[in-house]
Design a protein around this nucleic acid. Sequence first.
DNA 1: CCTGTTCTGGTACATTTGTTCCATTCTCCC
DNA 2: GGGAGAATGGAACAAATGTACCAGAACAGG
Lengths: 175, 175
Amino acid sequence: MALTRKGEARREALLDAVLRVLARDGASGVTHRAVAAEAGVPLSAATYYFSSIDELYVSALRRATEQQLALFEGLRGADLGAFAAAVHDWAHRDRGAAIAQYLLMFEAMRRDALRADAEAWYGALARAIDPEGRHPQRTRVTALAVDGLLLRMLWLGDPATVDGVEAALREIVSR
Amino acid sequence: MALTRKGEARREALLDAVLRVLARDGASGVTHRAVAAEAGVPLSAATYYFSSIDELYVSALRRATEQQLALFEGLRGADLGAFAAAVHDWAHRDRGAAIAQYLLMFEAMRRDALRADAEAWYGALARAIDPEGRHPQRTRVTALAVDGLLLRMLWLGDPATVDGVEAALREIVSR
DNA sequence: CCTGTTCTGGTACATTTGTTCCATTCTCCC
DNA sequence: GGGAGAATGGAACAAATGTACCAGAACAGG
């Protein structure tokens, strides 16, 4: 049952492929065949490494969320410029991961197993904004606004530049 | 091609059924058969009134968003309590419509035809908060936070009570 | 080098799904 | 009330999809 080095790489390639398919074709486009083709592996590889399509899908969502969580941890106490750059890249460069992260939230509505991941994300966002937890009330509101901003960037592509993101963040925190 | 009175009712019943299926089984659960069964009509009715599954799905998303938009228009200038009650009902009672509204945003990422609907929604939210457009900057941030709050309610079910929602809204606007 | 395990890639099959078809019934309007 | 168009519901079919299977190749550990 243990995975070979090469096997592990293939597994990761499949998970990455899910994110690309997700960004290109949406959730309904995530099929065994589409993901396998995107990853450049035969169909049976997708069923070999993941017992079901659901496990493949959820594993990819989880992975994207964990990566996002790590990024937030790295932003604890960062200045606004660094925060803006990270947020910009996330919504525009790692679009697939960003979409996956929000789709995980949607799944969490109906799956208890994903609730913990969803809450962890909210917690990490709050900690990135206020590492010491000194202003819980103010942080709550700021986190909500940042969340709204992330969505707006994903859906409308606006703001599109790092400077635009920084300006929007400044507006949020300056009040 | 004109619709009978009864035919129109059946069409609406199908669109309503889509929202219920959406809330129960997620987007992937929206199939001709599932929706027809939920609406209590034969399978062929779903294909008779909608030329494709995609048209059925998108029509339902659009309808939910339009209803939401109308609700926002009715809230222009309303006090915080009324706003809180409306928001609460939307996220907890009309859950299906709320989910549909956000899924429309997701679809808008890849479909230009839905962009206008997504932007109209943002506009309506802003107008509900600041009918006269007197404080554009302040309104932008408030709208982002309210959007974040709506999502949080959908995903985590928190805040769950009207009072809780009102408190959260008060926190948002009081700064 | 040998042996048991992991991996490969191709095939096959049952199910689900979207869509079409059609004979019959119902509705609306003149 | 009669006729044209709309609606009904059941059946059928092709395509897509999830999953199981398997004979052979690659690999890891002793």
